[in-house]
Design a protein around this nucleic acid. Sequence first.
DNA 1: CAAGTGCGTTGCTTTTCTGGACTGAGATAG
DNA 2: CTATCTCAGTCCAGAAAAGCAACGCACTTG
Lengths: 163, 163
Amino acid sequence: MGRTADYSKESCAVAATLEVIGDPWTLLVIRDAFNGVRRFEQWQERLGVARNVLAARLKTLVRHGVLEPQAYSERPPRHEYVLTRKGKELSAVLLTMHGWGTKHLYGEEGSGVTFTHKACGHELDARVACACCGEIVQPRDLEMHVREGRLTVAEVLAKDEAA
Amino acid sequence: MGRTADYSKESCAVAATLEVIGDPWTLLVIRDAFNGVRRFEQWQERLGVARNVLAARLKTLVRHGVLEPQAYSERPPRHEYVLTRKGKELSAVLLTMHGWGTKHLYGEEGSGVTFTHKACGHELDARVACACCGEIVQPRDLEMHVREGRLTVAEVLAKDEAA
DNA sequence: CAAGTGCGTTGCTTTTCTGGACTGAGATAG
DNA sequence: CTATCTCAGTCCAGAAAAGCAACGCACTTG
């Protein structure tokens, strides 16, 4: 494609997140990472994504600390990519997308991918809860606010890559 | 850009969802919709997105039933776009992205956009909960499964547009 | 020493975005 | 009753990014 979309002048956590995981394929790379994929060839084969694009995605995910390269062989020098804690916490995004797609696109039968909640053993139906009061958040309970004078996405991402 | 990425052969609710909201700008269009934006010119001005791209995005969001055109003037004939129920439920995705970006990209001070949970009056810190047992879902509690023989994303989206 | 594996890079084509000008129906102003 | 303004787009040239396929390189295996 040409993903020229540039959200960097915004000053919003959603826009900043999109700057990290908003490229085409990126979220599917992460999804597969949750399913145990760790190596270039595995992603390439499963997704059918172009090799140069995959290489670019892996590079930026590492740059942003979502994936971490880990050597699994000295000779020949080979490494695999594992999810960092930061990366694992993207499961929240994956789960809500999965939930929405299951409810509104796939029907009852569900899609070819499911998540199990090991704590209770059931297939997970994800809801968003408020960390403060614990209630399930309904769209009508939301109010969005905009504040001025915050760091732009560009500034925030520069810091993020430095870290 | 050139978003040529084609997930349609996949058979996964995440991929299907990406096919609807995975285009650049789309999620920011929806974010602004939650903030009360309803008209072409408003989105265009706020986001600075190219007009043709915005027109294309609005069209596909309508096609997928995320936005609904609603006349607000007969003469001249003008309409605005309002979120459907399906669209409002994308708040879950927005909230988890916002949460991740706030935690991992912006720090304590937060970004320029916040959500308030009207039920408890606090700034919302979104968590993913299991609808079945009510527990907050930790990444480590997840297990992903792949099943065969499900509808492909292409098939599901064709149905969705028909509906 | 020939072929294979894992992980990319390089080059060329195609698709999509960007930016800006332009259109068209109607409202508003003088 | 012509001239400008608003809204909601469309159109077009050019740039940026993805798609595809071939090649490179460092080792290993037969």
